[in-house]
Design a binder for these strands. Sequence first.
DNA 1: TTGTAAGCGTTATCAC
DNA 2: GTGATAACGCTTACAA
Lengths: 336, 336
Amino acid sequence: MTTRERPTLEAVARRAGVSRATVSRVVNGSTTVAATIREAVNRAVDELGYVPNQAARSLVTQRTDSVALILPETANRVFSDDLFFPAIIRGVGMELEAADKQLVLMMTGSEAGHHRVERYAVAGHVDGVVFASIHGADPLPGTLARRGIPVICSGRPMTAEPPVPYVDVDHAGGVAAAVRHLIATGRRRIATIAGPQDMVAGIERLAGYTATLRAAGLPELVVTGDFTRESGITGMRALLARDPSLDAVFVASDLMAHGALMALREAGREVPADVAVIGFDDFEISRYSDPPLTTVRQPIGEMGRTLARQMLLLITGDEIPESVVLPTELIVRDSA
Amino acid sequence: MTTRERPTLEAVARRAGVSRATVSRVVNGSTTVAATIREAVNRAVDELGYVPNQAARSLVTQRTDSVALILPETANRVFSDDLFFPAIIRGVGMELEAADKQLVLMMTGSEAGHHRVERYAVAGHVDGVVFASIHGADPLPGTLARRGIPVICSGRPMTAEPPVPYVDVDHAGGVAAAVRHLIATGRRRIATIAGPQDMVAGIERLAGYTATLRAAGLPELVVTGDFTRESGITGMRALLARDPSLDAVFVASDLMAHGALMALREAGREVPADVAVIGFDDFEISRYSDPPLTTVRQPIGEMGRTLARQMLLLITGDEIPESVVLPTELIVRDSA
DNA sequence: TTGTAAGCGTTATCAC
DNA sequence: GTGATAACGCTTACAA
């Protein structure tokens, strides 16, 4: 159980009959090494099972080849029943893996968590920090950026000082497409269950709803949820109480949309005959709801991959645009 | 964007007018430092914004204070629509966080992925490795353990050489409770949709089904799925074709159970009147299926926390039992 | 092309 | 109690 003695560069060098520097060159793929020597070194490496000590390497190179992904643990969305964060993790992870970088996952939320992340990043444990979601006006991204640490956010940060690059999806465009679809299919009393108003995703989806409805001269009807199924249920009940004659509802997340579907059934309304429902996310599960959910697809995996790609550019010192916005798409199924 | 010059121990020492050794003592909470000096050092630390360099520290302490969690990326369960891995991640993450350790997430699957994990661990980048799931007779846990690296597995490994400690749930017990519940409520033609037979979870749940049914002298009817909803749909269709008179089905995962529910509705069978259905997992979503799903709850979050706890013990050199088995519990809702 | 040697920023072992 | 000083294992000028 005790850590077995591990061979060092020195040991490999002795065995191969060369200097440490030469071994280092071979291990790091330098081309300026004679073929015969390279072979001898590689043989010694294999025989000894040598693997470079990462700490020693980092100490001199100032790089760790790993990237932190920060999840706001407080968010209801995290791991409850929501596949947003898992999909982000997967996307970021795959792209980093392709670049041979490691993913360090950190959850924050508490004040203490914030400090841990800051210390961790400043201690040089990672080459950069990716924020999977920003709550309110979180100062952490800015703090780290000011410290000279590469930072990128998923979703436009609500703080501007200093500006931190971000990747986001076209919330407003997707919502507009959804609401226009409802209008085009004859709906006139279109309500919405909005997302939390301390997150850009919640804010922008509501803004898209409001703008499109105003442009069409139709009345607005808004309740707010927190992206959970439970809040979709209560939100839908509230809407029905406020306006029993509503004939459509745009729901700012698929999970809330499923809640809305349940509340509508409970109230004896047919979907889509009496009330049309459109969600936002396009999770796998929405293909299987009853009825299958019409929804705005956002490319979450692609978002994760893009986040990672931008981070890699940042690390290598390349310039990147302050924002990348990915398209959304209306997926029409049976609920609207 | 360039990394700002970071203060070192040396700088703090100069500012506080003491030696590096003393600063190190203060930073590491040694008690053998005079109060006045400690204060002076702490002031200097704050003023300079000093944070210890992790690489330098690891180099000498041989510890990294981080732990790797390995996900088998090939598994259909990972991030598809399944909340098993997210729940494990969350459990492990929270417990490690409480111990001030970091979680490094790695996905494997490909041959290359295996090598990456091995190199990474051997390079001393982490203090230990937690496997979130084992596929078939994966040699990696044993390989790492032989290298002297602390290893623990979620689910009993199918290889025994060398024995690697694990945490698992009582699959057989949970399944037995489920099947006995079906028998007690008058079901006699009880089928099963089993999980993949290259994973211990799949194997043991099937074994539990078989054993209980044999003990009761009832016939067996088995098809195999891969834990996905889609395989639950096709599995249920196959069962119905094989024995149209079946009156119950135990399904080895909630996701497959939802698929089964859909296939049953499609076939015009009422649940539970015509066919009783019991799942395994107790995901949040199963409370909301139609009808709400009777299922065997396995404490996934607790499993993640236990994995982390055992790993922490391993790292500190404590003895741990070769296995910890957590209880499962039958949750009766409306589907059976 | 290869070797020598100087760090990288800590911690830990000694004396004092 | 505090301070020198020697590791820790590697990369990288600079020499040869």
